[in-house]
């Protein structure tokens, strides 16, 4: 039998459990052949479900074992693994859930999936060395407004519509999750990595918009202009300084500079 046809047919048997594999493999009976192929079928689903369970810890806890397995099996059937690394098998799950009517009724479940996957991405995102406060102390005062910032690749910002952060924290502490609630307004969340550990927290609206502005390449002056629309004039400088200190502490910043080049040395005080 042609190798390509054999592999195509066998894969079909493994994925679907369809009868007829006895024609391909040696076994005393059709039942025996089916039993042997079932080792591979079972292995395929159980292996991918295990990966999903590790990547979606919060979602698995929220849905419970049976519902999570049902969802996982539906997802794997709809999105067979196509990447060489099983680490990526779960990447479409939030999108898949958002497309299912039953889960549109459970926005906290979709939010939890988004949060879990963001944590997974932050865990092994590309490394980058954070800058510290000393970096800013070298900048000439007249050049501050021109500064642009470069953020750590692990930092992700996205919106949720439920109290999923409280639910996730409760689960991590081993406590029962609080009842799901829809928030009065969408809430933005930051997920990031600091010293190899992954963190998440809610973002105040002014911080969310400042990050958005800065990540799009706008300079510090523009960032402050944005803050001035949300704070009294005499509070803007203080708030901007507070945000920068927070971002440094959280290791979100990996560079800053003038214009398009975030590593350009020109803004620095040459005497330092």
């Amino acid at each position: 039998m042609n190798l390509a046809i054999l592999q195509r047919d066998l894969q079909h048997f493994i994925l679907t459990g369809a009868p007829g594999v006895h024609a391909l493999v040696r076994a005393d009976t059709a039942q025996s052949a089916a039993r042997r192929i079932a080792v591979y079928s079972h292995g395929y689903y159980s292996r991918l479900l295990e990966v999903l369970g590790k990547d979606y810890i919060g979602l698995a806890a929220l849905l419970g074992e049976d519902a999570f397995e049902t969802l996982g099996r539906q997802y794997i059937a709809a999105y067979p693994s196509i990447h060489y690394n099983a680490r990526w098998v779960g990447q479409e799950l939030p999108k898949f859930m958002a497309g299912i009517a039953a889960y549109r009724e459970l926005p906290h479940a979709v939010d939890m999936a988004k949060l879990d996957w963001a944590i997974t991405l932050a865990f092994d995102a590309v490394d980058a060395a954070p800058i510290d406060e000393g970096y800013f102390s070298q900048i000439l005062p007249e050049r501050w407004s021109e500064l642009v910032f470069k953020f750590h690749p692990a930092l992700q910002v996205f919106a949720i519509s439920s109290n999923v952060l409280d639910m996730k924290r409760a689960d991590e502490r081993g406590e029962p999750m609080p009842p799901a609630e829809v928030l009065p307004a969408p809430q933005h969340v930051a997920v990031w990595r600091r010293d190899l550990r992954v963190f998440y927290r809610a973002l105040p609206e002014d911080e969310r918009s400042a990050i958005c502005v800065a990540q799009n390449g706008a300079d510090f002056g523009t960032l402050c202009e944005g803050l001035s629309r949300q704070h009294a004039e005499d509070a803007v400088g203080m708030r901007a300084a507070e945000l920068l200190r927070t971002w440094l502490h959280e290791q979100w910043l990996i560079g800053c500079g003038v214009g398009a080049c975030a590593t350009q040395p020109s803004p620095f005080n040459s005497t330092k």
Partner: peptide
């Protein structure tokens, strides 16, 4: 695997 699918298993050859 074949046809772009990865079974993440070590399938024997004929």
């Amino acid at each position: 695997g074949v046809e772009g699918i990865n079974l993440h298993d070590l399938m024997p050859l004929p």
